[in-house]
Design a protein around this nucleic acid. Structure first.
Length: 574
RNA sequence: GAUCUGGUAGCUCAGCUGGUAGAGCAUCUGACUUUUAAUCAGAGGGUCCCGGGUUCGAACCCCGGCCAGAUCACCA
């Protein structure tokens, strides 16, 4: 492994710490009693107060900056709550004759990125910085690689920020260390989850877990990941949704169940799609989609307030307001609103003509429902910025939704669109087992015609419905999409700790001669020492190949080039 | 999958018409007991993503590949 200069220095420092008799990776607990954020916000600089506030505390964290000033130094350490400045005086931590701890460990061997613990008391410097003055210095862990080093100037401009997206995603740990706003994004994401949990638990719904490895995948239209179980010798699929399992639980008698579920879809990736992503699905008995719309508004309004402190979220150029009530359109109304055309009474030919007129690309396999969906997708979706419900979808697109109570050809389904993207999907669940079987069979037909996302028929799920499922409202929310909005992130990768990436090139440089180097080496071993021009001629390589080969050999210290009065000679390095 | 853009020091980036590879920060040596983008004096550090080709000569031009981002396609 090729180490950079800085990595070599750090390994030397590590050994020097060991030589001092200090364990660079000690095992003992360091009992932290104070945290950066608490110190910075709550320390009272008052002669009287300071006698009580944050005296004789213990803090720990990662060294982020060092400013050495002879017999004293300032450090900034970072803990989970933020950064706090540390002031180390030589004679305060080395009261005896031996000043090694300061002169050697702190000044020479301590690097940015190391973990340390400080016993000390808080005071305020004359420049007004709340600071922990160290009385005891404890080394806690050595960092062997240099961290990126962003700096902020007086004007608040950040220099040398760690911004390369590839490095940030591949080494998220580094991203998290040096980019505080990234930590904040993921805190918000977690807050979203706890806010929803709180809301749903308060209603008495049961948080459950259902299988991720499934013998049949269902509940959505998507291509699955396929795997194999050795002992059972059977194909298993990673779930694409958990809908069918949660409905089985409604059949079983629970009246409200939800699950935060990692789902897996073997499809294209984009800034809105990662192969694994998270949905929350919720099913509540005796309810319908109208009721569910009200729940969604109420829950997401609360989530926004819990995460951002307000219902208004800045997302790119827009301010998105989750305050209730949200705008509602039927799909037909939305199309009419954005195109001025009423398609609600149109037959397939008329829809096709309309699509053509609006320059919406269509193909002959599209039926009535798909045409309506395309018209909506092309003309409306991107324009819906504020959270908006779109209701009453064509039945063809929704094989698990109940037929509309009054409108022929439609189902009781809604989606919410926000910032031009679908964020959630819900319907009055189809609980008529005979209708459900017929819908599955339509999907089978689509599958036979080559639709590789058509749903498969799940006999066990149908059996469950035949036992009887109460009328039920169901909901699925794309957690990643919501997280993108709540954190003003333009890519799904920014709200996933470890987004899917192709493997990085292995930089493992094997010390192995390539073909040309081997050729030159073989010629050289016969003579042990040759004139460079002769060797080059015998090798018969092009100038460039020769140059590469001889440079490769000398760099690996296999061969050496010597110049004397007789000319240039190459010999094998003993 | 298509198109565009990019890949140079630990990080962020320059690098002209093809002519000895640069800056700031970081690192190293020295000075400095309230600094904060600390400061001052000096020094070192490179597989220019990989492989071919053109050329006297390639970070730069050409061909092929790898990785990433953006846009599009796909994806309710």
């Amino acid at each position: 492994m090729q180490l950079s200069e800085q990595e070599v220095v750090r390994r030397q420092n590590l050994q020097a710490i060991v030589d001092l008799g200090i364990n660079p990776y000690p095992a003992a607990e360091f009992e932290v009693t104070a945290y950066a954020n608490d110190i910075n916000t709550n320390y009272q600089h008052d002669e009287e107060e300071s006698k009580r506030n944050f005296q004789n505390i213990k803090v720990a964290g990662r060294v982020m900056t060092r400013r050495i000033m002879g017999k004293a130094m300032f450090l900034v350490i970072q803990d989970a709550t933020g950064e706090v400045q540390i002031y180390i005086q030589r004679d305060a931590i080395c009261p005896d004759e031996n000043k090694d701890l300061y002169n050697t460990l702190c000044k020479k061997l301590l690097d940015r990125g190391d973990f340390i613990g400080i016993d000390g008391s808080v005071f305020m410097t004359k420049t007004g910085e709340t600071t922990v003055k160290a009385s005891v210095f404890t080394f806690l862990s050595k960092s062997l690689r240099p961290l990126p080093n962003p700096k902020t100037d007086e004007a608040g401009v950040v220099h040398d920020a760690f911004t390369d997206p590839e490095l940030r995603y591949r080494q998220r740990y580094v991203d998290l260390v040096v980019n505080p706003e990234v930590r904040e994004t993921f805190r918000k994401r977690t807050k979203m989850y706890s806010s929803m949990r709180q809301y749903l638990d308060a209603k008495g719904y049961l948080e459950v877990e259902t299988p991720i490895l499934q013998p049949l995948y269902g509940g959505a239209a998507a291509r699955p990941f396929k795997t194999h179980h050795n002992t059972l010798d059977m194909t298993l699929y990673m779930r694409i949704a958990n809908e069918l399992y949660l409905k089985r639980l409604i059949v079983g008698g629970f009246e409200g169940v939800y699950e935060f579920s990692k789902d897996f879809r073997n499809e294209g990736m984009s800034r809105f799609h990662n192969p694994e992503f998270t949905q929350i699905e919720l099913y509540v008995a005796y309810k319908d989609y109208e009721w569910m719309m009200n729940l969604v508004e109420e829950m997401l309004e609360k989530v926004a307030i819990d995460v951002a402190g307000t219902t208004k979220i800045q997302v790119g150029e827009n301010i998105i307001d989750f305050k209730r009530p949200w705008k509602r359109y039927t799909m037909f109304e939305a199309i009419e609103h954005f195109t001025g055309i009423d398609v609600s009474e149109m037959d397939e030919d008329q829809l096709r003509a309309t699509a053509k007129k609006l320059h919406v690309p269509v193909d002959p396999t599209m039926g009535k429902g798909k045409l309506i969906d395309e018209l909506f997708g092309e003309n409306c979706e991107a324009q819906l910025i504020q959270p908006t419900f779109i209701t009453d979808y064509p039945v063809e697109m929704s094989p698990l939704a109940k037929k509309h109570r009054t409108k022929e050809g439609l189902v009781e389904r809604f989606e919410a669109i926000c910032n031009g993207k679908e964020i959630l999907n819900s319907f009055s669940e189809l609980n008529d087992p005979i209708d459900q079987r017929a819908r599955f069979e339509e999907q089978l037909e689509l599958g036979k015609r080559g639709d590789d996302e058509a749903m498969v028929l799940d006999e066990d799920f149908l059996r469950a419905l035949e036992y009887g499922m109460p009328p039920t409202a169901g909901l699925g929310i794309g957690m990643d999409r919501i997280a993108m909005i709540m954190t003003n992130s333009s890519s799904i990768q920014d709200v996933l700790f470890f987004p899917q990436m192709k493997p990085e090139k292995t930089n493992a440089k094997v010390l192995e001669l390539n073909e040309d180097e081997q050729l030159v080496f073989n010629l050289l071993t016969k003579e042990n020492r040759m004139e460079l021009a002769t060797l080059k001629e015998q090798a018969g390589l092009s100038n460039k190949k020769w140059d590469k080969a001889i440079k490769g050999l000398t760099k690996a210290e296999i061969a050496k080039v010597e110049k004397n009065d007789d000319g240039l000679f190459v010999f094998i390095n003993e």
